[in-house]
Design a binder for these strands. Structure first.
Lengths: 121, 121
DNA sequence: GTAGAACCTGACATCAATGTCAGGGTCAAG
DNA sequence: CTTGACCCTGACATTGATGTCAGGTTCTAC
C-alpha cells in the first residue's frame, strides 16, 4: 500500500510515517518512480511505534528495542534497558494517578457543595 | 522564605518558581529591594502545581482551576473543565498501561528464553 | 568594607515529534 | 492531454516548561 493508505489505516499522519522511516523504525520499498510501498504488516508496526511513542519512549529507544520485540532474544544490557523503561512508565502512571485523585477530590467536593444548594433527591 | 529555600524545599528550580509566578500560579511579596518572599504555604502550592504540570495540564489550565481547588465552589463550566481534564488523565493512564503491558510481555518472553538457555532451578 | 553567595530581569536555547509550506514529480480517470 | 489527487524532498515553525547566560543588585559573614 502507499503512504496515504497506511496513514488512514493507522491514524498516523503522512508526515509522521516518513519521520518513523527516517528514524529507522520502519522500512519501505520504493516504486521505480520513488514512491514508498508498505507491506500489510506495516500497519501493526506503526501501531506499536505509536504506542511506545505515546508512552514517552524516544525513537532511538524504540529503535533499540525493536529487535528484542521481534526476536524475543535480549542481551543483559537490553533486558536492563527494557526494565528501566517499564519502570519509568510505572512511575509516570503513579504520577498521573496521584493527579487524578487530586482532581477527583476537587470534583467530589464541588459536587457536594452543589447538592447542598440544589438537593438532588 | 526566599526563592532559593523554596526551591530546595520543593525540588522546583528557581527558574521554574519564577515562571510559575509569571504565569499567575503563585504570588509573592517583595522586600524593599525587590527580592521575592514566600509564605510557608507556598511549599504546598508549588507541589500542587508540579503535580498538575506533571499530569500534562497547561499552566493556564492550572490557573483556571486554582479557585476551584481553594474555594471548592465551581460553575457548571468549571465542573465540565475539571471532568474533562480528569478524563484526559485517565486516557493517558490507559495508554501508559497498555504500553507497560506490551513491554512486560517482551520482558517475560526474553526471560523465558534466557531460562531455557540457563535453567534457574 | 569586602568576598562570595544569593537574588533580580531579560533574552536566547533546548527537546522531539509533528505541522506546514514550497516546488516539483506521478498516476488514474475523463 | 488535462485535471485533481497523491506522492516526493527539504526546510522552517511550533509547543511549553525549563536551562542557561549576561549584566547587575543585595545580602551575609568575616
Amino acid at each position: 500500500m502507499r503512504i496515504g493508505e497506511l496513514s488512514e489505516r493507522t491514524g498516523a499522519s503522512v508526515r509522521s510515517l516518513r519521520y518513523y522511516e527516517q528514524q529507522g523504525l520502519m522500512t519501505s520499498e520504493r516504486t521505480p518512480s520513488g514512491q514508498r510501498t508498505f507491506h500489510a504488516d506495516a500497519v501493526e508496526r506503526v501501531r506499536l511505534i505509536q504506542l511506545l511513542l505515546a508512552a514517552g519512549l524516544s525513537s532511538p529507544r524504540i529503535l533499540e528495542m525493536m529487535p528484542c520485540i521481534h526476536s524475543g532474544t535480549t542481551t543483559r544490557a537490553q533486558r536492563r534497558m527494557l526494565e528501566g523503561e517499564r519502570l519509568r512508565i510505572e512511575e509516570r502512571i503513579a504520577e498521573l494517578e496521584s493527579a487524578r485523585e487530586r482532581l477527583s477530590r476537587v470534583i467530589r467536593i464541588a459536587r457536594e457543595r452543589d447538592e447542598e444548594r440544589a438537593p438532588a433527591a
